[in-house]
């Protein structure tokens, strides 16, 4: 038994457990905290997969930036009004059934190897060393994928402007939407 198995199962269990908390807990703050925990667990798994840079980004962007944004919004909107969440959605049973069936199918595919993946082996381990290099990652990002990278920056700019505009909407403007709804 390799020690890495231990770590894998540990982090995987933390990730799945935290994910379940996010989906099941009634307190939105607990949900947010569980989500942070899950992000860290995933980051650890990324490290195990030799993706150091992505792991760092995961912690910085997801756990750092995005979650802070979530918490800001949760606190901005009077917390007591959203804290205790009504939960049972009418379509929940159906959703759970379908999701479980879908998961069963996916796992069946993964385990039975119907995806047509060659079994991982020595070559993967050898390549893993190379793929872990942040330097190689940067070189690839700024050469082959330079254009998508620039597009992504434009996307972020657009999202920023959009978010500012949306968050600034006056009450009347939003109210206009609801009036249309009435008609």
């Amino acid at each position: 038994m390799d020690l890495s198995f231990l770590f894998f199962y540990l982090f995987a269990a933390v990730a799945v457990g935290a994910a379940l908390v996010v989906v099941l807990n009634r307190n939105i703050l607990h949900c947010a905290m569980a989500l942070v925990l899950m992000f860290f667990a995933i980051a650890a798994l990324f490290l195990m997969l030799g993706a150091e840079f992505i792991a760092a980004v995961q912690v910085l962007v997801y756990a750092g930036a995005i979650m802070v944004l979530f918490l800001f919004v949760i606190l901005l909107i009077q917390i007591d009004r959203v804290q205790m969440l009504r939960f049972a959605h009418r379509q929940s049973p159906l959703v759970v059934i379908i999701a479980v069936l879908l998961l069963a199918e996916l796992l069946y595919m993964i385990i039975r190897g119907t995806l047509g993946i060659a079994p991982g082996g020595a070559d993967a381990a050898a390549a893993g060393a190379a793929s872990g290099s942040t330097e190689a990652f940067g070189a690839l990002l700024y050469t082959t994928y330079l254009f998508p990278f620039e597009v992504a920056s434009v996307l972020l700019l657009a999202a920023m402007i959009g978010a500012i505009l949306l968050a600034r909407l006056d009450k009347e403007e939003v109210g206009g939407v609801s009036r249309q709804d009435m008609s």
Binding site: V16, I28, C31, I74, L85, S92
Partner: peptide, 15 residues
């Protein structure tokens, strides 16, 4: 799959 269940069953937009 857990995420799917969350998206489809939670009522709170933030969640």
């Amino acid at each position: 799959a857990i995420g799917v269940v969350g998206v489809l069953t939670r009522r709170n937009a933030i969640l």
